[in-house]
Design a protein around this nucleic acid. Structure first.
Lengths: 170, 170
DNA sequence: TTTCGACATGTCAGAATAGGAATGTCGAAG
DNA sequence: CTTCGACATTCCTATTCTGACATGTCGAAA
């Protein structure tokens, strides 16, 4: 399970509450690992139970601020380095492409056009995100920028591919 | 749920048994929508219950050959055209990138190097797959080729990105 | 004729995901 | 001082996914 490690990773930067983490997931991490509120709070409880994180302070509205424990940091590093064979990514978008043959050529082209628009939208969103973040020059943010660059290249590649694909349909 | 529709899509080409479909998933579809045997048989039962598919013939070892019903084809077309907002793809590979800051620069570069190798491997596998398939020129296979091209471009893009990213780490 | 690999399906427990409802508190603006 | 939006967590149900385990049959080769 990667949600577990995503939470450890975010807490490695600085302590935060479930609510804080939720917002982080909604913005940057949403693109690589979407998660819901119910899942997060449940996972935080489990991580606290197993000693990976601990409640550092309690705030105003029952707010619990979690910190990464030494044990949690060890586990995070283990996950990062002992990268087991990574699972195939699931893509319903691409899955549909396999079956476009049951549609008319016009409909199929229509779908690919949607993908082009989706990619353009994605590129724009990422550019906006880029501008909205103040990339203070701490070490951690280097990787945030690298991840963002991935997103930009990915969307560009997908757009070009979809344009090419639309042209293939006779 | 997309597994449901993936099965409908495969059956749209020609009737098949669960066992047959399983093999299809292990090869081409594994890259976009991995699924296990237990999931498949369960899903086939459900699809049969709801009338999307039906048992056309029974074979040797309790083999049940399923066919797509008219109702199933309608549902498949609906799924393809009324493409609801597509969910974000999950990528544990990219997720790790966000947290490489907790490692040493050497370790981080090591991870990116793994990604480069993974991408090269992916490109090779796809090229081999390409050669192994006899692309008979029916209409359906056009989209198989288009999907394969996506995979090739995706891996190439990821490799180039990882090379660039490794160079960013000071 | 035995034996073994490929064929073929079914079931089950446990984890992960999705999406929502319920509940309550604090602080600032009016 | 009231009200309302943001803060903050917990609980719930249903579905999906994972990884095993269980069971059995057919056909070909030794």
């Amino acid at each position: 399970m990667s949600l577990r490690h995503a939470l450890l990773g975010l807490l490695a930067e600085h302590p935060a509450s479930g609510y804080d983490l939720l917002k982080r997931f909604d913005t940057s991490l949403a693109n690589v690992w979407p998660a819901t509120q119910s899942q997060m709070y449940a996972e935080l409880s489990k991580l606290a139970d197993t000693g990976m994180i601990s409640v550092a302070a309690e705030g105003p509205r029952g707010r619990k601020e979690y910190t990464l424990t030494d044990e949690g940091l060890v586990e995070l590093r283990r996950w990062l380095t002992e990268t087991k064979p990574q699972r195939n990514t699931r893509s319903d978008i691409l899955l549909r492409v396999f079956f476009l043959g049951v549609l008319t050529p016009e409909q199929a082209r229509g779908y690919l056009t949607e993908l082009i628009e989706l990619s353009e939208q994605g590129e724009q969103d990422l550019r906006r995100l880029d501008e909205s973040i103040d990339w203070d020059d701490d070490d951690l943010s280097v990787y945030g920028r690298i991840a963002l660059e991935y997103g930009l290249r990915f969307n560009a590649m997908r757009r070009e591919w979809a344009e090419w694909a639309a042209a293939q349909i006779k």
